[in-house]
C-alpha cells in the first residue's frame, strides 16, 4: 500500500466525517487542483465522478484515519490531561504517527474506548473486535475491579483540584500499587499499608493498570 501524506490523511478524515456522520456528499470540484486530492485519486482512494466519492479501499483507509485521530485525542486527554484547543491541535499532529499497529496498542492500553473526548464515536479496530470476544483490559477504573484485584495507579481522570487533593492525601498518585478489598456498599482499598473507603464517584476517577487478576473461581458473584 502506498504511504499517504499528512494532508491526504486529513482530507480522507474530513470526507469520512462528512459522508458517514453528516450524511452529505461534499462538492470537491472547487478544490480539485489540490495536490493532496490528486494524490488520493492517483492512489485509487477517490473518484470524483463516482456518487460516493470514496472507493471501498478509500473508505476503509478514511475510517482508520478518523480512528487514529480520535484515539490520539483520547490518549492525550486521559494520560496527559490535555484540554482544548491544545488537545485538538496536538491530536492532529499525533495521529499521523500512529501507524503499523501502534493505534491498536494505544487502543488496548486505553481499554478500547468507544468515544473521543468530544463525545464522538471512535470507529472500532481489529483489536476492539478481538477484545469483544476475550474481555481483558489493561487500564480500567477502580470501579471495574473485583475484590482482591491488584493494580497500579496509572492516572486520575479529574481536574477538580478539590477531588485531586483529596485523592493525593490518601496517597493516590500514579505508580502506587492499590488493592481493592470491597466494592459494596463502599469501595474499600488498600494502598501502602493503609485502608480507605471511598464512594463510587471518587472510585470512577481512579484509573489503574491491572496487575494481578484474582482467579475467576473466587468471584462467582459476577
Amino acid at each position: 500500500m502506498q504511504k499517504l501524506t499528512d494532508a491526504e490523511e486529513e482530507i480522507l478524515e474530513s470526507l469520512w466525517i462528512e459522508i458517514k456522520e453528516n450524511k452529505k456528499i461534499p462538492d470537491l470540484k472547487i478544490i480539485k487542483d489540490e495536490p493532496a486530492l490528486q494524490g488520493l485519486i492517483s492512489k485509487n482512494f477517490l473518484k470524483l465522478d463516482s456518487k460516493d466519492l470514496l472507493t471501498s479501499t478509500g473508505l476503509k483507509e478514511a475510517e482508520l484515519c478518523v480512528r487514529r485521530h480520535r484515539l490520539s485525542e483520547r490518549l492525550l486527554a486521559d494520560l496527559f490531561a490535555l484540554k482544548d484547543p491544545l488537545l485538538h491541535e496536538a491530536g492532529c499532529k499525533f495521529e499521523h504517527g500512529l501507524h503499523h499497529g501502534l493505534e491498536d496498542s494505544v487502543c488496548t492500553l486505553l481499554g478500547h474506548p468507544k468515544k473521543c473526548p468530544h463525545g464522538l464515536a471512535i470507529p472500532a479496530g481489529e483489536c476492539c473486535r478481538r477484545f469483544e470476544k476475550t474481555p481483558q483490559r489493561l487500564i480500567v477504573s477502580l470501579k471495574e475491579l473485583d475484590p482482591g484485584d491488584i493494580g497500579k495507579i496509572s492516572y486520575v481522570n479529574t481536574h477538580d483540584s478539590q477531588i485531586l487533593n483529596r485523592l493525593i492525601s490518601m496517597g493516590i498518585l500514579p505508580g502506587s500499587q492499590i488493592k481493592l478489598l470491597h466494592r459494596f456498599p463502599s469501595y474499600v482499598f488498600e494502598i501502602s499499608n493503609s485502608s480507605f473507603a471511598i464512594d463510587s464517584d471518587l472510585a470512577e476517577n481512579i484509573h489503574v493498570l491491572l496487575l494481578n487478576k484474582k482467579a475467576p473461581a473466587d468471584k462467582k458473584h459476577k
Partner: peptide, 11 residues
C-alpha cells in the same frame, strides 16, 4: 454539589 466520601479505615 453532591457530597463525596472518603475516609481512612484504621486497623
Amino acid at each position: 454539589r453532591r457530597p463525596s466520601f472518603n475516609i481512612e479505615l484504621p486497623p
